[in-house]
């Protein structure tokens, strides 16, 4: 079923992708989406609540089956091989509460060949999180930091971060953004979904605007600044003005 891997294939390709929820009155969350994402970019996936960002991310990660259309990662359908190259941070806390931070690091090291324990322990130390702490004893914000550390300690080809800075304090936001930039590998791409545009604008190369499940705009941050004479945040507010 899977197509053969070719280095010439784009990192992420989305062809005429649709997702309909039959139990929600046939609501189309993603509507005939076409997108090609190259390597080596930091991309902001932006849009108002309910525009289909998370649905799109879930389909890329194989957590949701599309109604029609297809997603290709390195020319492959979402599956075991594509999950090997994607490092995904969901908007939810997926860690098993009964485990210790150290055990979660071992877990990631066991399953992901590209996971660096050294990098993870170094980031934990920087944020003052004890590896011996049990996850159920940590606050929601600290758990989110642990999740981000686990995700960013991989040397993946595609990082998909769904609302990575939503639940943390401003000081930690700076650290997280620094972490993202520090771990940035020219051959990998980062897709960042967030509402907090002003916080991340400085690190973005490109932006994707989504509206009502469709792709509205896919352009570079420089193009917005030069053509619109506005910051991405200001342009976003103008485009999505209620």
């Amino acid at each position: 079923m899977n197509e053969q891997y070719t280095t010439a294939a784009p990192l992420l390709q989305i062809n005429d992708l649709c997702k309909r929820y039959p139990n929600m009155g046939n609501y189309m969350s993603v509507f005939h989406m076409n997108l090609t994402i190259p390597r080596g970019r930091i991309i902001g996936l932006l849009g108002p609540n309910g525009c289909g960002k998370t649905t799109l991310i879930k389909m890329i990660n194989g957590l949701l089956a599309p109604t029609s259309g297809a997603v290709y990662i390195n020319g492959l359908f979402p599956g075991a091989e594509s999950k090997r190259v994607i490092s995904y941070l969901p908007e939810r806390t997926y860690l098993e509460n009964g485990m210790k931070v150290r055990q979660m690091i071992d877990y990631f090291a066991d399953f992901y060949e590209d996971f660096s324990k050294e990098k993870a322990y170094s980031m934990l130390e920087s944020l003052g999180i004890s590896p011996e702490a049990r996850l159920k004893t940590l606050s929601k914000g600290t758990k989110e930091k642990v999740q981000l550390i686990l995700v960013m300690s991989r040397n993946a080809e595609l990082y998909i971060l769904d609302e990575p800075i939503a639940g943390v304090d401003p000081a930690a936001r700076d650290y997280i953004l620094r972490t993202i930039i520090t771990n940035y590998n020219p051959n990998s791409t980062i897709i960042l979904s967030t509402h907090l545009i002003s916080d991340i604008e400085s690190v973005l190369d490109d932006v994707i605007f989504m509206k009502n499940g469709s792709l509205m705009l896919y352009t570079s941050v420089d193009a917005i600044r030069s053509q619109q004479n506005k910051s991405v945040d200001a342009y976003f507010r103008e485009v999505y003005a209620c």
């Binding site: 194989g62 091989e81 999950k83 939810r92 997926y94 860690l95 399953f111």
Partner: peptide
């Protein structure tokens, strides 16, 4: 819990086949 709730996000993004 590990398949259909929040923990499922980790389970289903592991680089393994669903049958495994």
């Amino acid at each position: 819990k590990t398949t259909y709730t929040d923990e499922g996000y980790l389970t289903h993004t592991l680089p393994v086949e669903t049958k495994t």
